[in-house]
């Protein structure tokens, strides 16, 4: 059973419409659908040394963060650290295009992003989001460069940036409670549980740390980039550079946020 966060349950007073959070969700969804639809109709292959290859097989290599390409300043280079945060894994559900990767990330972004955007203001939140995503990508590239296999694998997904948002949430609002719905397998149970943000986020953090420790001992490969999650989470500490003045003032003076 996995507690899926849907909102923070305290008396949230959103001072503005979370344009950037909503915009990021829409952009991510739009890019995913656009990629899926375009590649579905793009049947002309690319010819490689080992035979023809189709667009859907290389799109993540072009726009994702491939450590070897970044290191050698090839492809999109630094730009891939940004473009990769808008890419998500493809998938199917009941013969329809569907991505658990995308859905999961967007739910987390919706649950935690609104409050952080509220604390920063829209533009500063966007900068913070991009910075957290970039730091997550950099850490991931640095870690994966040591592996002969991983350095060739593209890193995609908004999870590094969203981990940054979660880290910021832990720092700014540790006393709030997170409303979650239990997920058994892929089936959500319509019951709401409220979990203290501190406990929920530390539990989530532990879930990222344990596989990394395991990975260093067994050299096992994971499809999830836990290092990026961890780096993004700690990048959340940079939130103090982006929060609104009044909130920072309240934070440093110990007033209720």
């Amino acid at each position: 059973m996995f507690p899926l966060p849907v909102a923070d349950s305290t008396g949230v007073r959103y001072r503005s419409i979370p344009w950037v959070t909503v915009g990021l969700i829409l952009i991510n969804v739009a890019i995913w659908f656009h990629t899926e639809i375009q590649l579905f109709f793009d049947t002309a292959p690319f010819y490689t040394d080992f035979g023809p290859i189709y667009g859907e097989e290389i799109v993540h290599f072009v726009y994702g963060t491939v450590p070897q390409a970044v290191r050698n300043q090839q492809g999109l280079g630094a730009l891939s650290a940004i473009t990769s945060t808008f890419l998500h894994a493809p998938g199917w559900l009941f013969c329809l295009p569907f991505s658990w990767h995308l859905l999961g990330n967007m739910i987390f972004l919706w649950a935690f992003g609104r409050r952080i955007e509220d604390a920063c203001g829209s533009w500063r939140f966007l900068l913070f989001y991009l910075l957290a995503g970039m730091i997550a990508s950099m850490a991931s590239v640095l870690m994966r460069m040591g592996s002969v296999y991983d350095r060739l694998i593209p890193g995609i997904g908004a999870s590094g940036a969203i981990a940054g948002v979660m880290g910021a949430f832990l720092i700014l609002f540790p006393g709030t409670r997170i409303t979650t719905i239990p997920l058994i397998g892929i089936i959500p149970i319509p019951i709401r549980f409220k979990i203290p943000a501190l406990i929920y986020l530390l539990w989530w953090l532990a879930q990222q740390v344990l596989p990394i420790i395991q990975q260093t001992q067994t050299e096992e490969y994971y499809t999830t980039d836990f290092v990026a999650h961890l780096a993004g989470f700690f990048a959340g500490m940079l939130i103090f550079l982006f929060v609104r003045k009044d909130l920072l003032y309240r934070y440093v003076t110990g007033a209720r946020l």
Binding site: V70, R71, A81, L130, L131, M134, M138, V141, L241
Partner: peptide, 23 residues
């Protein structure tokens, strides 16, 4: 308070520069 926001913008550019330089 003003400069800390500048630091945030600078970090973003610094990350991009480092990534651009192949880390």
């Amino acid at each position: 308070y003003a400069l800390r926001e500048v630091v945030g913008i600078f970090l973003l550019y610094a990350c991009l520069a480092i990534l651009d330089a192949g880390l």
